[in-house]
């Protein structure tokens, strides 16, 4: 194990996969300058043929992944802020998510798109969205949302090796966070959630950027006598319903924490799955803690007001706990 920063784990994953397979190439706006650091140094290591700075042309960039992937390459597109995926939506929604189906399975589409998402840093509305739930509805792309450096590296390596398209959502502004990363080669499987904490009173389910506050909420609740089981979803599509429902059933009390907006959020879908499959085990209504239904404003306090936080998670958990309040 080595203590590694989040952004370095992503960088290591790309580097290792480029070394492993010469068909992998990276392209995107300013991947050489790399404002986040996740593609820093790759051009020096692999050259400009395989690390390609591009014009600011998102709609063409997303569409290019389809042509390059269908013609034998493994493109890794860095789209920078996840909001820019909306600019490039045709390439993702009408092309990448559908080209294999429309061809009757003639082709493989081993494309990866890396996007940094999430608010809380006063980047204002167009650089702060958590848009993964919109992509959950496309059907034809896998979605991974790591919450820590080890999973970020393992999931990105799996994404690049996958013969299907994968969107990799990295929590924005968390690049400096440290975590233990195995020294040896490993892959984190796409489609597998992880139970990261045991506890018999409540089940907290989260992913990506809201995982840290969920763990902090579990710590606070434990101090006050409520033990939480905590699930890190890790992959939103395909969703590991088995692990999620088993964890939900063990306590019968479920809070789902998600940074996307409440309406049709990832939490909404997970809540529906738990309600359909585990209803008989539920002892209380399923609760969602999400962003409120508005764009994120610049003014920091106004922005924070809309986002999930530890207090909101603790309050929701207490509300559905056995006594509706903390143990005496």
């Amino acid at each position: 194990m080595a203590r590694t920063r989040f952004i370095q784990a992503i960088n290591d994953a790309i580097r290792e996969e480029m070394e492993r397979d010469e068909k992998v190439f990276v392209f995107g706006e300013d991947v050489e300058a790399s404002i986040f650091g996740d593609t820093a140094g790759l051009a020096e290591r692999f050259g400009k043929r395989r690390v390609r700075n591009t014009p600011i042309s998102e709609n063409t960039l997303t569409g290019m992944t389809v042509g390059a992937a269908a013609c034998g390459y493994r493109p890794v597109l860095h789209i920078m802020f996840a909001n820019f995926l909306f600019t490039g939506m045709d390439g993702v929604a009408n092309q990448l998510a559908k080209a294999r189906l429309m061809s009757g399975g003639q082709i493989e589409l081993p494309a990866t798109i890396i996007a940094s998402y999430g608010g809380g840093r006063a980047n204002a509305a167009q650089h702060s969205d958590t848009p993964y739930s919109a992509f959950m509805n496309l059907g034809g792309v896998h979605l991974v949302v790591p919450s820590n450096p080890a999973d970020a590296k393992g999931l990105l390596k799996s994404a690049i090796r996958s013969n299907d398209p994968v969107l990799f959502f990295e929590p924005g502004g968390r690049g400096g966070e440290m975590g233990d990363v195995p020294d040896e080669e490993y892959l984190t499987p796409i489609g597998k959630a992880a139970v990261v904490r045991q506890g018999g009173d409540l089940t907290l389910i989260s992913m990506g950027s809201t995982m840290r506050m969920t763990i902090q909420a579990a710590d606070q609740l434990a101090e006050q006598g409520l033990e939480c089981e905590v699930v890190d979803v890790r992959t939103l599509a395909p969703l590991d319903e088995e692990t999620i429902c088993a964890a939900a059933e063990r306590t019968g009390r479920v809070v789902i924490v998600d940074e996307s907006r409440e309406r049709a959020s990832a939490a909404s879908h997970i809540a529906a799955v738990v309600a359909e499959k585990s209803f008989g085990h539920m002892k209380a209504p399923i609760r969602r803690v999400t962003a409120r239904n508005a764009g994120l404003p610049l003014a920091p306090a106004s922005e924070q007001y809309l986002l999930p936080n530890v207090d909101k998670i603790v309050a929701a958990a207490v509300e559905i706990s056995e006594n509706g309040r903390l143990p005496a």
């Binding site: 190439f25 043929r49 290019m64 013609c71 390459y73």
Partner: peptide, 16 residues
């Protein structure tokens, strides 16, 4: 929409 897809295919030709 075939234009971006073709641009990616042409990039594959170029790399080939």
């Amino acid at each position: 929409a075939g234009i971006p897809v073709a641009t990616g295919a042409a990039l594959a030709n170029h790399l080939d």
